[in-house]
Design a protein around this nucleic acid. Structure first.
Lengths: 142, 142
DNA sequence: CCATTATTTTATACTGATTATTATTCAATA
DNA sequence: TATTGAATAATAATCAGTATAAAATAATGG
């Protein structure tokens, strides 16, 4: 999937972003990668079309795209290790803004339906779930 | 909550770990922190009881505890940024071992129950869910 | 309880991911 | 087309985490 210059121009305008060649190519590389690749991977892909591009530009634009909601982050936790000593079954509420984690109880997963959707071989020993959103103080600020 | 030496000795024996003072104090610091603190935070807490402890020891023991299942990791993604250009509503299956992410469709969340459990002020604009387990190839290896 | 062996700890160097800085280039707008 | 503010490139700096090797400590068998 390759966007025309016009299509990307519209997309950028909608989100208040300047249209640059680098920006378009980075965005297209993410879309073409079909999700879940690292900035280094995307950098490598983009360099095939813009050999002079800088890794920092890739990072800058990925951050920007995430902030405007053009992309969604798949690694939405704090950037450092966190551990939990509570081994009782429970789930987590994670704030997409401040990365705070709180526990949530309750039986809101339909395990039967979930199992039906699981790909073959996926081992769901203990269905640990994380739900993302905005915590109280972050949604107040917004 | 402070474990007696005896209690910790049992816990360690059960998981095949040698009993050291450092190990006990690190574990207790995690439990006392009631989850969700960073290794640096835990290091700071432990230093109040063992000023000579090394940060590497904290990391070593946290990793070890996670591996034996004494603690659970709350940041279970790849250590680098991942983004997703698919903005359609969908959820993720994450492999706790290799950190791979795959999409999963389906309506397996009981939103009514979930909302009932949400703390006041938590903004669940788009209920994005991640389900953790072992992917096919990792569960085969095990 | 003592000696031996395996594991753990410490100190420090190192790697890899990401961000900051700054000079230069480019896009938007009049 | 000229101006101005934003974006890019190059590179240095930072930060989290890991590797290494020597010293200390725990487990084990007598």
């Amino acid at each position: 999937m390759r966007l025309t210059h016009e299509q990307f121009r519209e997309l950028a305008a909608k989100h208040g972003l300047a249209v640059t060649h680098q920006r378009q190519v980075v965005y297209e590389a993410v879309i073409a990668s079909h999700g879940h690749y690292s900035p280094e991977d995307i950098y490598a892909a983009v360099r095939r079309r813009i050999p002079s591009i800088s890794l920092a530009t890739v990072y800058n634009n990925l951050r920007l795209f995430i902030e405007c909601g053009l992309l969604r982050e798949v690694t939405p936790h704090a950037s450092t290790l966190r551990v939990d000593g509570n081994l009782e079954p429970h789930h987590h509420l994670v704030c997409s803004r401040c990365k705070s984690v709180q526990d949530i109880e309750g039986d809101f997963i339909d395990l039967k339906r979930l199992s039906r959707q699981l790909p073959v071989g996926f081992d769901l020993t203990q269905p640990l779930i994380e739900v993302f959103g905005l915590c109280r103080s972050c949604s107040a600020k917004k």
